[in-house]
């Protein structure tokens, strides 16, 4: 059986960010950071270059602090797998201004392309649903990505979790700022907050 074609990750992320106004974006380390930066750098982007497993929780704390602003976490399957308990924690509140998009290629792309657990038997959308996340979706077609995009840039009624079946190959690395203090204060500045 031949596998269905998978989404172009750069194109998919660019489409996810189409229609963005004031959305705050947290990216998981590795390729999701590069994909987001390739779409466009923004003071409202916070790129993780480490802290593996922390992206969804960081988005959750940010969403609680900024309840009238959409917060979007863009991460990978390996990063989400490392902090899977976060889905249970987030579901205790399911903030409607939080969306988590997992670019799922079933691979640890940064470390040599080893298979992740989603290439075996784990279904992250099902995990999120079982944890109680309010709206869970598994997308594999570009039309579905286009339909999802507007929902990421407005306030909803519950937390949204979506997996995107993306291509397995690596793309060129597009490296955005990696100074943590700069990234932190840049986002705070965009929200009208002082450094301390």
């Amino acid at each position: 059986m031949t596998e269905a074609p998978r989404l172009d990750r750069r194109d998919a992320v660019r489409r996810l960010l189409t229609g963005r106004r004031d959305t705050l974006v947290i990216t998981g380390l590795g390729a999701p950071t590069y994909d987001t930066a390739a779409a466009s750098d923004d003071a409202r982007n916070f790129y993780l270059w480490g802290a593996m497993g922390g992206a969804a929780m960081m988005g959750f704390g940010l969403a609680l602090a900024q309840p009238s602003t959409p917060v979007l976490v863009i991460t990978g399957d390996g990063e989400m797998l490392m902090g899977m308990g976060a889905l249970a924690t987030i579901a205790t509140r399911n903030p409607g201004n939080l969306a988590i998009v997992v670019l799922d290629n079933g691979r640890y792309g940064e470390t040599g392309g080893q298979e992740s657990h989603t290439a075996h038997r784990t279904d992250l959308r099902a995990v999120a649903a079982a944890c109680g996340i309010g709206d869970t979706q598994a997308l594999s077609r570009i039309e579905e990505v286009d339909a999802l995009a507007p929902m990421l840039h407005r306030l909803g009624n519950t937390t949204l979790f979506a997996t995107l079946a993306i291509e397995r190959g690596e793309r060129e690395r597009l490296l955005p700022p990696r100074d943590g203090v700069f990234l932190k204060n840049r986002m705070r500045g965009a929200l009208g907050l002082a450094p301390i």
């Binding site: 929780m57 960081m58 704390g61 969403a63 602090a65 205790t92 929200l191």
Partner: peptide, 26 residues
């Protein structure tokens, strides 16, 4: 206060980093 139970402690480190980014103390 929003009291949030965690499944493991490191979740809280990342969550409170997000809180600070958004202007809240945790």
């Amino acid at each position: 206060m929003a009291a949030v139970p965690l499944t493991t402690e490191e979740e809280g480190i990342a969550m409170l980093a997000g809180a600070w980014l958004g202007g809240q103390h945790g």
